[in-house]
Lab assay of single mutants.
Amino acid sequence: TFTSIVTTNPDFGGFEFYVEAGQQFDDSAYEEAYGVSVPSAVVEEMNAKAAQLKDGEWLNVSHE
């Protein structure tokens, strides 16, 4: 299960995956970082959410 939350205070020191406002979700980078295949429906969902981000916001993507 993939989830996401919007934050204005990303923790770059941890093992977190963020999408910056104005960027798209990079499923290849996510797969490389976590060894998890990302279904195309999830990629579309995360890109739709990322498109709604305002300046200074980040989308924190995770999975269980």
Rank of each mutant, 00 (worst) to 15 (best):
T1A: 15
T1E: 14
T1W: 15
T1N: 15
T1Q: 15
F2V: 10
F2S: 07
F2N: 07
F2R: 07
T3W: 10
S4L: 05
I5K: 09
I5N: 11
I5G: 09
I5D: 10
V6I: 12
V6D: 03
V6A: 04
T7R: 00
T7F: 00
T7E: 07
T7Q: 04
T8P: 05
T8M: 11
T8V: 10
T8S: 10
N9D: 12
N9I: 08
P10K: 05
P10H: 06
P10S: 02
P10E: 01
P10V: 04
D11E: 10
D11M: 10
D11A: 09
D11S: 11
D11R: 09
D11I: 13
D11K: 11
F12K: 07
F12I: 08
F12S: 06
G13N: 13
G13Q: 11
G13S: 14
G13M: 10
G14C: 12
G14E: 08
G14R: 09
F15N: 15
E16S: 09
E16F: 14
E16L: 14
F17A: 03
F17P: 00
F17L: 02
F17E: 03
Y18W: 08
Y18S: 03
Y18R: 00
V19T: 05
V19S: 01
V19W: 02
V19C: 04
V19I: 13
V19G: 01
V19K: 00
E20N: 06
E20P: 14
E20W: 09
E20F: 05
A21K: 10
A21Y: 12
A21N: 07
A21L: 05
G22D: 02
G22Q: 06
Q23L: 08
Q23D: 09
Q24N: 12
Q24S: 12
Q24I: 12
Q24H: 12
Q24K: 13
Q24G: 09
F25T: 01
F25C: 02
F25S: 02
F25K: 02
D26M: 06
D26V: 06
D26C: 07
D26S: 08
D27L: 13
D27S: 15
D27A: 15
S28G: 12
S28W: 11
S28Q: 15
A29P: 01
A29K: 12
A29I: 07
A29W: 08
A29F: 07
A29G: 07
Y30D: 00
Y30A: 02
E31K: 12
E31Y: 14
E31Q: 11
E31S: 12
E31M: 12
E31N: 09
E32D: 11
E32F: 10
A33S: 09
A33Q: 15
A33F: 13
A33M: 15
A33Y: 13
A33E: 08
Y34F: 14
Y34T: 10
Y34M: 09
Y34S: 04
Y34C: 08
Y34A: 03
Y34H: 09
G35A: 06
G35T: 04
G35I: 02
G35V: 03
V36T: 05
V36W: 00
V36H: 05
V36A: 04
S37P: 12
S37N: 11
S37F: 11
S37A: 13
S37C: 14
S37L: 10
S37T: 14
V38R: 00
V38F: 04
V38E: 02
V38K: 00
V38H: 01
V38N: 00
V38Q: 00
P39A: 04
P39R: 00
P39K: 01
P39Y: 00
P39C: 06
S40P: 15
S40N: 11
A41N: 13
A41E: 14
A41M: 11
A41I: 12
V42C: 06
V42F: 07
V42L: 05
V43E: 01
V43T: 12
V43M: 07
E44L: 09
E45Q: 10
E45K: 06
M46W: 08
M46H: 01
N47E: 04
N47I: 05
N47L: 03
A48F: 10
A48W: 09
A48D: 09
K49C: 06
K49F: 01
K49L: 12
K49A: 08
K49N: 05
A50L: 09
A50Q: 00
A50C: 05
A50F: 00
A50V: 09
A50N: 02
A51I: 07
A51L: 08
A51S: 12
A51M: 08
Q52W: 06
Q52H: 10
Q52L: 14
L53S: 01
L53Q: 00
K54P: 02
K54W: 03
K54N: 10
D55G: 08
D55N: 12
D55S: 10
D55A: 10
D55T: 13
G56T: 04
G56N: 08
E57G: 01
E57W: 04
E57T: 01
E57P: 00
E57V: 00
E57C: 03
W58E: 02
W58M: 11
L59M: 06
N60G: 15
N60W: 15
N60A: 15
N60H: 15
V61D: 03
V61K: 01
V61C: 03
V61H: 02
S62T: 13
S62N: 08
S62E: 03
S62C: 10
S62K: 15
S62D: 03
H63E: 03
H63D: 02
H63L: 06
H63N: 06
H63T: 05
E64A: 13
E64Q: 14
E64C: 14
E64N: 13
E64P: 10
E64S: 14
